[in-house]
């Protein structure tokens, strides 16, 4: 009986190990801690960051915030979100921005600036590395969900 329990425990530990535990490098989507939104679906995050529908589920307008330029975090975020390279994301956005169809995301130079911005703006939403998460922010979407 003890031997069986050991095998079950070992199997459970393997399953946990294989279930990709949260890594500090994971890209997470965050809002201000006081934002009433608790969770977003991938489709809703796509709508926000690809300029299709710029509101939270409660109807409040969202201010999407992007990292200026390129960078590994931005590259990973869009690759995981829509499977596109930054060149294709820029191409898509140039269609929206340069026709005046919608306001593009606000730009911040780095993750720290994004965190400062979201801490001050209740309706802002952006993406950061999990290691940068602090008590002023709330996670509303994770890619490994």
């Amino acid at each position: 009986m003890i031997r069986v329990t050991k095998y079950v425990l070992a199997f459970a530990l393997c399953l946990i190990a294989l279930s990709s535990p949260a890594s500090p490098n994971d890209v997470i989507v965050v809002v201000n801690i006081n934002n009433p939104t608790d969770q977003l679906t991938k489709s809703q995050v796509i709508d926000l960051f690809m300029g299709k529908y710029l509101a939270f589920p409660n109807g409040i307008k969202a201010s999407t915030v992007d990292i200026d330029g390129k960078g590994n975090l931005k590259k990973r975020f869009y690759q995981q979100l829509v499977g596109m390279s930054l060149a294709r994301v820029n191409s898509f956005w140039s269609r929206i921005k340069f026709t005046g169809r919608a306001k593009p995301p606000l730009k911040q130079p780095n993750e720290d600036a994004i965190i400062r911005f979201i801490t001050l703006e209740k309706d802002a939403i952006s993406y950061i590395s999990r290691s940068k998460l602090n008590e002023n922010l709330k996670v509303v979407f994770e890619f490994n969900e």
Partner: peptide
């Protein structure tokens, strides 16, 4: 605003967009 007659009418001058 850009005229929106056909699909690319608004952004045909923005080569990077297509």
């Amino acid at each position: 605003t850009p005229v929106d007659l056909f699909l690319l009418s608004e952004y045909r001058d923005i080569g990077f967009a297509y």
